[in-house]
Write a protein that binds this DNA or RNA. Structure first.
Lengths: 221, 221
DNA sequence: CAAACCCTGTGACTTGGTCACATACGGTCC
DNA sequence: GGACCGTATGTGACCAAGTCACAGGGTTTG
């Protein structure tokens, strides 16, 4: 990809004046990261504002007992704004970010970021919008963990992570880490779904046979 | 309070150039809100950046089943940055903010906020720092709700909310709302603490008699 | 004082998380 | 093909936490 091309991935940036766009393009660089790369984690923070071009990054938290929970995902067209905020500001991250796939991203150095924030209301709007989307995500996670039933959350997550054919390649352990619960809990719930004929399972694989039933559970009051 | 005085409450603003400070002071106004005021909530957002002078504001989430959880508190010297981000950007708030005490705050209109963000790197730093502190708070809430035992969380909260004499004026219901759990759960845990001689309780009142024991539980691995 | 309202206590039950194993499946290496 | 090994899944017992229903006991208010 030529460095000039990536702007087209970000509708929020289209309205930037030409001079700012060129400054952005000139001082940023496109980075490639292989799947599995740890992008940041407790004690290690990036020094640039990140715009995702290809791939997805998973941001998660790990407890001292080894349990995990996925906070949100950053995918193509998103910015990883929270990362930047946290690194600009306060203390260490408790969360970590992992490249789930091969990733291509634009890295905007802090100085450039600060300069463009100062010069462009459109860029500020872009950044704050990205912020607030993430914060909304976090609010949703809190609400679900605190108040929602595990079967409902699992149904939601299965629908989210399935491809158009209703096919999912995740182990029970991975699903447990998505929701911040234990593997056995997922196994039991999946057995129940299977008993009802909503899904079929095999080692590392789940297929949704009755998406409507799952959807109804997922949106249940 | 004279409008020029409030700047002294915010160390992060001391380094602002004089012209920016005067712009800030000129276009902002000090607002007073009585205890119990709902500052924002789902479907209602403020239109200004808020700096707290006196009092505390509680930001919480309410589930459809009526259970509540406190996300964080904003007190004197803090800015309510998340509010602003969410209102600048994305969709509706799921959370609501309530004045816990009488509150005095500086309201900076959106236009002024945007202008000063553009002009002052110091102000940007101030804002992003406030952001990241809140995000860190949210990460901590998620970690606790997802992974921490309720007795540990209750011990922490009792220590947090007690005055220097170890005195707390909260009902079991209010403590349940702090932690996002049910009233009965709090009642049972408090009975257990009392049975161990760590606290004494009366209607609407808790007194900590062995803070060390609570502290040990609160920091338990 | 009585009624209404809030705060607290309690038992029975359901859901979810933990622990300790038992199996079963998918590879690789002779 | 068969032995072996690491990972994935199944299961039962148990504990922790949330739900439901209801009973008293204070406090406040008319």
């Amino acid at each position: 990809m030529h460095s000039e091309d990536w702007v087209s991935h970000f509708p929020g940036l289209h309205s930037l004046p030409d001079d700012i766009l060129s400054a952005l393009i000139a001082s940023s660089r496109v980075v490639q990261l292989p799947a599995g790369t740890r992008i940041f984690g407790p004690g290690h923070a990036p020094d640039a504002f990140i715009l995702m071009l290809r791939g997805t990054v998973r941001v998660q938290q790990v407890s001292d007992t080894g349990r995990e929970i996925v906070l949100y995902r950053v995918s193509a067209g998103d910015s990883c704004a929270l990362t930047t905020a946290c690194l600009m500001g306060y203390d260490d991250y408790q969360a970590e970010a992992l490249a789930e796939t091969d990733v291509a991203a634009v890295a905007i150095p802090r100085a450039t970021f600060d300069d463009i924030i100062a010069r462009s209301p459109e860029f500020r709007r872009f950044v704050f919008t990205a912020f607030s989307r993430r914060v909304t995500d976090l609010f949703r996670v809190i609400e679900e963990v605190a108040f929602a039933r595990i079967d409902v959350r699992l149904a939601q997550r299965l629908l989210e992570r399935a491809n158009t054919a209703g096919h999912i390649e995740l182990t029970h352990q991975q699903l447990a880490a998505e929701l911040g619960t234990a593997r056995e809990v997922i196994s039991r719930q999946l057995n129940e779904f299977q008993r009802r004929g909503w899904i079929t399972t095999a080692r590392g694989v789940i297929d949704i046979t009755q998406p409507e039933a799952l959807r109804q559970l997922a949106t249940a009051p």
